[in-house]
Amino acid sequence: MEAIVLEGLGQPLTQKEVEKPSPKAGEVLVRLKAASLNRRDWWITQGKYSGISYPTILGSDGAGIVVEAGEGTDADWIGKEVIIYPAYGWGDSDKSQSKDFSIIGLPPYQGTFAEYISVPVEHLQFKPAELSWEQAATLPVAGLTAYRATFTKGQAKAGDTVLITGVGGGAGTFALQYALAAGCKVFVTSGSGEKIQRAIKMGAAAGVSYKAQDWAEQLLELSGGGFDVIVDSALGEGFTKLVDICKPGGRIAFFGGTAGNIPELNGRKIFWRHITLLGTTLGTFDEFGEMLAYVNEHKIEPVIDEVFPLADAEKAIRTMDNSTQFGKLVLSIG
């Protein structure tokens, strides 16, 4: 089969002929139709992700058709259109992942930038019929991460005032769509005026450039007093200001750390105003199903910036160098 392989640090992604996987007992073979890129893939190419080994087939998001079932696996899955849950070893608790947790796209688990992938049958969910292959493939990592941050952790509900920082990335854009569908009043930040305008066209009430010296003060005034829920993926020095613009009793759910670590926080502000800080990563398989049901119910159409053929995976990932994309980058496979 054809697959996109990262041979080593500093090497470009290259398309190679590799051995097609065979499904083991309890697994199915999926003929992938589309895969999407995540910031995780970019970090791996930079050598800045834990557990990297080479060579590796990248990709954590995939959608396709089941074409083969391993021993003891229900053959009724064959021919079904599916989306793949991207994690192994979450564990039994819905509060956090276990120490065995890992995400496909690094050894020992082959990624989705390939024509075929073998996965446990319990990792499958049916593809929403109204979504294209490319749209469906955007959902696993970014869609699930945003769902858990917005609802499981942030507890966003109709009437809440919500802030999404760094809108334009995959998870941030999904969080915007989810919160709007829930009936929230949503505000955004970005370093790009164009991305802010796109978010407003999608339904955001307003947006502010985080490059502005007074971005927090602007948001406090625009929102009429602060935010019930803040969804953040950057951390960094600006995180301290998120505490200042969070309403009493508000929640700040955060994942990722593209702007670096959190500097010293004023704990007195946090406990006196009953603010809750909520770290989160990906989500459970049950939340994966809930997220897909939510997308179906609200007819959410994932935002795609550009679709590339599989052979152009290197070109696609270079698009992430300057974070100019709005929404997801997708690989069309076959």
Score class of each variant (00 low, 15 high):
Glu264Gly: 14
Met320Gly: 03
Leu144Arg: 04
Ser60Trp: 11
Thr281Tyr: 15
Leu9Phe: 09
His274Val: 13
Pro128Asn: 02
Phe326Lys: 02
Pro12Phe: 12
Ser102Arg: 06
Lys195Thr: 05
Asp228Arg: 00
Glu81Ile: 06
Ala179Tyr: 13
Pro302Ser: 04
Ile252Asp: 08
Glu221Arg: 04
Asp286Arg: 12
Arg148Gln: 08
Leu242Asp: 05
Lys315Tyr: 14
Ser60Cys: 10
Ala199Glu: 12
Ile270Met: 01
Ala259His: 09
Ile4Val: 05
Gln325Thr: 06
Ala313Ser: 03
Ala216Gly: 13
Pro107Phe: 11
Ile230Leu: 05
Leu13Asn: 04
Phe187Trp: 11
Leu329Lys: 09
Ala253Ile: 06
Tyr54Leu: 05
Lys185Ser: 13
Asn322Glu: 15
Ala63Trp: 11
Ala149Ser: 13
Trp90Ile: 07
Tyr85Ala: 01
Ser323Lys: 14
Ser98Arg: 02
Gln15Asn: 10
Leu278Tyr: 12
Ser132Pro: 11
Pro120Thr: 04
Gly191Glu: 00
Gly26Glu: 01
Glu115Gly: 10
Gly8Met: 00
Phe326Gly: 09
Gln218Ala: 10
Lys299Leu: 09
Gly327Ser: 08
Thr189Lys: 03
Met291Lys: 04
Met320Trp: 11
Asn266Pro: 10
His298Ile: 11
Gly169Thr: 02
Asp92Val: 14
Ala35Lys: 06
Val295Asp: 03
Ser22Glu: 14
